[in-house]
Design a binder for these strands. Structure first.
Length: 436
RNA sequence: GCCCUGGUAGUAUAGUCCGGUUAGUAUACGGGCCUGUCGAGCCCGGGACCCGGGUUCAAAUCCCGGCCAGGGCGCCA
């Protein structure tokens, strides 16, 4: 026997003045109740938004009134009633209740206030994340994230990229540097991938242009508002392009995402009080040397070859408020697979995409010559033998190629103007949080 | 890993410096009043000093240790 499932005639946000006089049925969660005695207002929330259900007690049978007295915040209810234009209601329309069924009860009191009347710290919010996400302002972030992901996939397909999936369980470090999580893999040790770097480079010899959107893991002991242990990377790799080609793809992707979010998520942007403007192309480009000079002019000397610290980036961010690229970093500050410049091997064909002082993406031209790659592995103190499977691919015809990795959550922080990365991750993971 | 700050009802906070009545407020929750609320309003109620040790006549308050949390640095997306 099939279950008898509750069904609605309309979503809450579809209850508009044009429906005046018609009968509707709604299903949702009780967002808020305001009881004025003879009249009672129930704000009913579903995925589309909130609608006001009005209870006029005078004409209702006792049995129904008792049922209404019994409902509480976050109960799941089915409601039937007549739509009525109502200038006194903020939305200009309300549903006069005729029938209500409680489909599921929420406990009382709830451990967390969904309506957001009392502010809560990020830790408390994350402890009660599901309730926290019911707040329309908070779930708007993830509706925007949905559009960002859809827009990115759409953009990549328009540009002949093929979506690939590379292993999350790997046998060795791909880049050295970042700390890896160790996992038990049957009778041996394995690690959680920190990047798809080597796989996507290998795959350009098959598909020419690949992209991957997926989670990666860093076991860093970071304790900041912009680091977590599990994050989402939007990665591309493309044959027959160098850093300039993939920088163009990156800035055009950002613009495409902005356009789609503005088109499809105006309501969510409004909820978050964000006035999103499509950034202008091209994004400004500066070299590492340019930035060193800028820092010097600001009274902050940095020795050539040193990577920028947060202190330096904050100064650069003061001056460059929006998106901009920094290119041609010193080779020694970059991973082994980055192509050194032909005319000056101390510099590399690398770039970072910045937004103010935040690093959003980094990438560059990759080394496509096996000999050079081996030399760089040795220079960085890595074990060449461990990379044998990867190095072999360079013997099978490896074209010049370039790519980048973009931090999805970092981009979201910029889009929705949040200064803690945990706000834009449904269930964030960091050194101190493994639940919920 | 290093550094700074904090831990008081479900939540957010006042009080802590300078130890001393019943630990205050808001909101949530329960009860009452209220026919146009939309941060509803008014009245009533229950609900808290992170844990352990020390100092003291007396500790939310001072000291030590632990645990937990927020943030910064390094590293990076």
């Amino acid at each position: 026997m099939r279950r008898n499932l509750p069904s609605r005639s309309h979503y809450a946000a579809e209850v508009k003045p044009e429906l005046d006089g018609s009968r509707v049925s709604l299903i949702g969660w009780v967002h808020e109740i305001r009881d004025l005695g003879g009249i009672k207002f129930i704000l009913l929330r579903d995925v589309s938004g909130i609608c006001q259900v009005t209870v006029r007690k005078e004409n209702l049978p006792q049995q129904l009134l008792e049922k209404i007295e019994d409902i509480g915040s976050e109960d799941v209810v089915y409601v039937e009633g007549l739509v009525k234009n109502q200038p006194k209601a903020r939305l200009g329309v309300e549903v006069i209740l005729e029938k209500i069924d409680i489909l599921s009860r929420a406990s009382r009191p709830l451990p967390y206030d969904v309506t957001g009347k009392v502010s809560a710290g990020i830790d408390t919010r994350l402890d009660h994340r599901i309730l926290d996400l019911r707040n329309p302002e908070n779930n708007a972030i993830f509706k925007i994230a949905d559009t960002v992901l859809a827009a990115a996939r759409e953009f990549f397909r328009m540009n002949n990229f093929i979506e690939v999936r590379t292993p999350r369980i790997i046998v060795t470090a791909t880049e050295g540097g970042a700390a890896l999580f160790e996992v038990k893999y049957f009778d041996s040790k394995a690690y959680l991938a920190q990047s798809p770097q080597l796989y996507k480079e290998e795959l350009v010899t098959v598909f020419e242009r690949v992209f991957e959107i997926g989670p990666f893991f860093r076991a860093e002991e970071s304790h900041t508002r912009r680091h977590v242990s599990e994050f989402t990377s939007i990665d591309i790799e493309a044959a027959f392009l160098d850093l300039y080609g993939v920088m163009e793809i990156l800035e055009r992707l950002i613009v495409h995402i902005y356009k789609r979010v503005i088109e499809e998520r105006s309501k969510e942007l409004e909820l978050l009080s964000i006035d999103l403007k499509v950034p202008e192309l091209p994004f400004p480009r500066y070299t590492y040397d340019d930035m060193l000079k800028e820092l010097k002019d600001s009274g902050m000397e940095l020795e050539w070859g040193e990577d920028f610290g947060t202190e330096h980036l904050r100064i650069l961010g003061e001056k460059h408020k929006g998106y901009y690229f920094i290119t041609h970093f010193p080779t020694k500050s970059k991973p082994f697979y980055i192509q050194p410049c032909e005319d000056n091997p101390e510099l590399s064909e690398s770039f970072d995409l910045m937004y103010s002082w935040i690093e959003l993406a980094s990438g560059g031209t990759r080394i496509s010559d096996r000999k050079l790659l081996e030399k760089r592995l040795i220079e960085q103190g890595l074990n060449v033998k461990a990379f044998e499977y990867h190095l072999k691919v360079y013997d099978y015809g490896m074209p010049i190629h370039a790519g980048w990795g973009l931090g999805l959550e970092r981009l979201l922080m910029v889009l929705v103007n949040k200064n803690n990365i945990r706000e834009v991750i449904l269930f964030p993971r960091d050194k101190f949080r493994l639940t919920p």
